[in-house]
Design a protein around this nucleic acid. Structure first.
Length: 134
DNA sequence: AGCCTGACTTTGT
DNA sequence: GACAAAGCCAGGC
């Protein structure tokens, strides 16, 4: 399934750097990631790439994951368990306190997880580029 | 300053 | 369709 074929009107949002960096502390790429991550509705999930794309650089998905590495240090807490890779796999589970926590959190929200993979991934997929872009 | 790493994704073989 | 390689860019050393 290629639900990512959405022909987004705005493909780039390069504001993050030039626009914001002129400000003092310059909201980092991370800040944006955290903000988007917090917007993920309960019971829904998204992918690193989706967030990266929404932030402007569609290929900086790794940065999103990297940002998530420090997510647990942020306040308010980031629902990092709702961010998966493009296949719906819990690639970051080992970064949770108990590795099983990620899956437990997802299941607690009514998401079925099997073999480290979210079931019905395309059904609960939440794409910020679609949901937030207007 | 330069090199290495990484919770990823896409593209080429 | 599986595997390899390369982009991507912030942070740590």
């Amino acid at each position: 399934m290629k639900i990512r074929e959405t022909s987004p009107k705005k493909k780039h949002i390069n504001q993050s750097r030039s626009n914001l960096s002129e400000k003092k502390s310059s909201y980092s790429f991370f800040e944006n990631v955290y903000e988007v991550a917090r917007l993920i509705p309960k019971g829904r999930v998204t992918s690193y790439g989706a967030i990266a794309k929404y932030l402007g650089s569609g290929k900086s998905a790794r940065m999103v994951g990297y940002a998530m590495n420090a997510a647990h240090l942020q306040v308010p807490p980031i629902p990092a368990h709702r961010v998966l890779n493009r296949n719906g796999m819990l690639t970051g589970k080992h970064h949770f306190a108990p590795p099983d926590l990620m899956q437990k959190l997802l299941e607690k929200e009514g998401i079925k997880v099997s073999e480290d993979t979210v079931q019905k991934f395309d059904k609960i997929y939440w794409d910020p580029a679609i949901e937030l872009a207007i």
